[in-house]
Design a protein around this nucleic acid. Structure first.
Lengths: 144, 144
DNA sequence: GGATAAATAATAACGATTATTAGTTAGGAA
DNA sequence: TTCCTAACTAATAATCGTTATTATTTATCC
């Protein structure tokens, strides 16, 4: 569960490349707050816009840098689809996604498909470690 | 089946936005040739490098433009994965892909998974039209 | 409070791709 | 064959999402 206080704690416990601890700044706390309980799969821009309402001078690069660190810490997931901006998800358990082909709306799908396997002929000698299913369709708003 | 002569024919039959026919140029013929029977999933750069051996002055933009048109015509597939350059595939029948997590090697998987479905709770009211499975693993060369 | 490494804002740089533009050419008609 | 014209090309600028750079500020430890 992604909570502001949990993540602040983990940030302070985490070492930089020089072995020194990372810091919790007001900017970072705001970014964590914008992610906490957020199931909207925001982009870096979305987070930036939201955070700027209370901290008008925050830089987009700061948002990107913080999100990148959270991804590296395993606290959020980065979702890359079809050449669009990355979206970020504070839900990190294994799950699939459902994408609207019309408006791009993206929903979490709890169900996973760990059993999928392919034939030896198709395997090309690979050692398969995981798979990844994306469902495409039309969301309620885009169905006329 | 993607063949140079087939594609040239389809290009000449195809109309531009002004209703005039598209043309077959030596540059385009070379790009078609580089794609014919190519199961290496080349990038635009790969195609450009290959084509430049016989046509040194061809522009990368020309390669991109031609590939874009082939995608729009449905003659090739564009494969977008994980923030890398797009790869192009003259095989257009429905198939999955297998990606090496170490070197990025990409193979076609003939098998498809049309039967996958998700629960009502996960469906979020979407009308699902298709799914898309990608397998990740380690290719023979990257297994030590 | 002071020291210091990390973080910030601003902005330049980056890589992949697309748009622009002036000049060239394919392909149909005369 | 030669002309015509819209499509095409090469060169390059522009775009978009993202990351790197840098001078300045700040969180945290003593």
């Amino acid at each position: 569960m992604f909570t502001v206080e949990e993540v602040c704690k983990k940030v302070r416990e985490r070492a930089t490349i020089d072995g020194n601890p990372m810091k919790v700044t007001p900017q970072r706390r705001l970014i964590f707050k914008a992610l906490e309980g957020n199931n909207q799969h925001p982009t870096a821009e979305n987070i930036h816009t939201q955070v700027r309402e209370v901290f008008p001078d925050i830089s987009l690069a700061t948002v990107y840098k913080t999100l990148r660190e959270l991804v590296e810490m395993g606290e959020i997931l980065e979702i890359k689809h079809e050449g669009e901006s990355s979206r970020f998800d504070p839900r990190t358990d294994d799950h699939s996604h459902l994408v609207c082909e019309d408006c791009g709306r993206l929903e979490d799908v709890s169900q996973t498909f760990p059993h999928l396997s392919i034939s030896d002929a198709d395997r090309h000698g690979f050692a398969i470690s995981r798979n990844f299913v994306v469902f495409y369709g039309h969301c309620p708003n885009c169905q006329n």
